[in-house]
Design a protein around this nucleic acid. Structure first.
Lengths: 340, 340
DNA sequence: TTAAAAAATGCAACCGATTGCAAAAAAAAT
DNA sequence: ATTTTTTTTGCAATCGGTTGCATTTTTTAA
């Protein structure tokens, strides 16, 4: 509790009969310092048990070596995978991570942004809350030229770099796949379309229908928070329909899975009666029976790329301002839930 | 990139014709400052766009308002849930979180510990890597009286507070449950027994057998990293046995699930031929068919409790030194995989 | 041997908030 | 009106590392 006395560069300076300035330079490998002196300094630092005081350093250099991460929630497979990817790079590059969750609330997102701003993070990685429809609460960062990179849940209007997959294309492909399997009445379980990802998936779905000359039935498009309960609800809804769909494409695997489970319990045969497709390649997609056709979403890589870009920008290696959008490769994974 | 000029308390002082000391005190509601003056100060701070410089503050107060978290990996359901719980409390209390993963490597764990130490976190929450068998790499914290709380993967010898569930009891209960269902040859798929959690689960399993007067068959106890592959492997192993087990108790749900899936594919009927039980109450346990009997592990609450205890200690409200072990309530969840 | 150039080190002023103690101002008591 | 007490406010040192510029030392050139 009581702060212990720490060894400072002044202690080392006294110990070696040098100046603090020399110690400071020696410790960070400044070219103007004699190699032998450096060696002595480093050894002395070790024997005295010195550790750099980042606050003093930050105070002077106005850098924190810290990256802020704001995400809707931590405890989803996808998000924790992204964070793992971010962490792997940040750790390697000597950056710390400050993480906070918006819990899908724009207000909390804004509050977290302020906290991060006051913590003086060097840069921010953001995945937006589901109903965030403007990014004004990040203006403080922009004014101070603190770089922001949006990932996954991005904002179209934003003038920051954003990283995502081509949700339109992925949805288009997976829908087309269902059509190729002979499906004609494909239902879509979508998320909040304020969010680019869900809007794009919906658009891709519609485009695929259109291209195949199939009609878009509005009563076959349902929106929800894509939770397991929402999946079950969708199952009930399907049971209530007189004209059943012959396939379901859900915007995530959880919703698809629970919908499928409900229908199975009510006598439907998958994929014979209804085919299924999800999104994300969540672990449950490989467990549910039949295994779920889905889109592989490269979360880990996405995290790594986001972190790499941000850090390179901070190091002055590559400017973020020039690149606007990065699209990662996603991949259709066909499993038993959509095979004839 | 180029650091912008910031508003400091000196700017406010000049603006209001007061001293920096008064501003500093006014901003933090010091009792010696006149209420009207405080009001003026706060308003001025707002209009000037002031934000506190935490480095200057930290430099003086030797506190960082930051908590370090070291965990094996982020991208597991359980861990991300714990982190979510930690974050919820930390955020509320104005603490930042620095998170890093050891990826189950003791060396990386030690490296991360050093980084955190140098980042001067106020306290640390740790869940140990699977093969960590001593906690010497955390000595630096102890020497500087920086509090550590271990959670889930704890270390028996440690003189720090640790938070976990009663793994022995949980394993005992779930094994007993299987026995009550009529099982006599129960297999155990365990994890690395260097780790308390897995050692305790194994012990609980054995104790339950013993209590029921059942023999412990060493060839029915297998150790692995509890991954999905390990589960599949276990399935193969079972197929190769002449004397089959009539139940499997795995130390996590993933391993149980994949073992079960493998056996199902090879003609076994669950639970008729073999019953199954897992651990953790992972989402997949509710998806696999039949649903998996498991132990509900309160990750979110565990995270909250760990964070609360650490922060209370830091605030001087409650000393951590006196409490050694906190055991959370866990709960047997019986599902179809183990019902006659 | 001396002058010029290069290398190594030191000086001292920051960075911005905090805080013990002293001083000033305001309020209360005499 | 004067003294005592209580409130407010200010002074100035401090936290520890960084860095432009000056100074010293060493090396090279003349």
């Amino acid at each position: 509790m009581a702060p212990e006395k720490e060894v400072t560069i002044y202690d080392i300076a006294r110990y070696l009969n040098l100046s603090a300035a020399t110690i400071s330079r020696g410790l960070k490998d400044h070219p103007a310092i004699n190699k032998k002196t450096k060696k002595k300094i480093i050894e002395a630092a070790k024997t005295l048990g010195y550790r750099s005081n980042m606050f003093a350093s930050n105070l002077r250099t106005r850098q924190t070596k810290t990256i802020g991460v704001i995400i809707p929630r931590l405890n989803s497979y996808f998000m924790s995978t992204v964070i793992a990817g971010i962490e792997s790079i940040a750790n390697e590059e000597g950056y710390n991570l400050i993480i906070s969750q918006s819990l899908e609330s724009t207000e909390k997102e804004a509050a977290n942004a302020i906290t991060m701003f006051n913590s003086r993070v060097d840069g921010v990685l953001v995945s937006l809350a589901s109903d965030t429809n403007n990014v004004n609460h990040f203006n403080a960062f922009l004014q101070k030229k603190i770089p922001i990179i949006y990932f996954d849940r991005t904002m179209a209007t934003s003038d920051c770099m954003s990283i995502s997959i081509d949700n339109f294309k992925a949805a288009f492909e997976i829908t087309t796949h269902l059509i190729e399997q002979g499906c004609k009445r494909i239902m879509h379980l979508g998320g909040n379309i304020t969010r680019n990802v869900y809007a794009d998936r919906l658009a891709g779905y519609k485009a695929a229908l259109k291209k195949a000359g199939l009609p878009v039935h509005e009563n076959l498009i349902r929106f929800s928070n894509l939770s397991d309960e929402a999946g079950t609800e969708a199952g009930k809804y399907i049971c209530s329909l007189t004209q059943k769909p012959d396939a379901v494409f859900a915007a995530n695997d959880t919703c698809a899975t629970y919908c499928m489970l409900y229908l199975k319990q009510h006598g439907y045969k998958i994929p014979t009666d209804i085919m299924f497709a999800g999104f994300n390649n969540d672990p449950i997609s490989k467990v549910v029976e039949p295994n779920l056709t889905t889109i592989n979403y490269p979360g880990y890589v996405m995290g790594q790329i986001a972190a790499t870009n941000l850090i390179n920008h901070l190091k002055g290696i590559a400017d973020i301002g020039t690149t606007n959008i990065v699209i990662l490769r996603s991949e259709l994974i066909v499993r038993a839930s959509s095979k004839k």
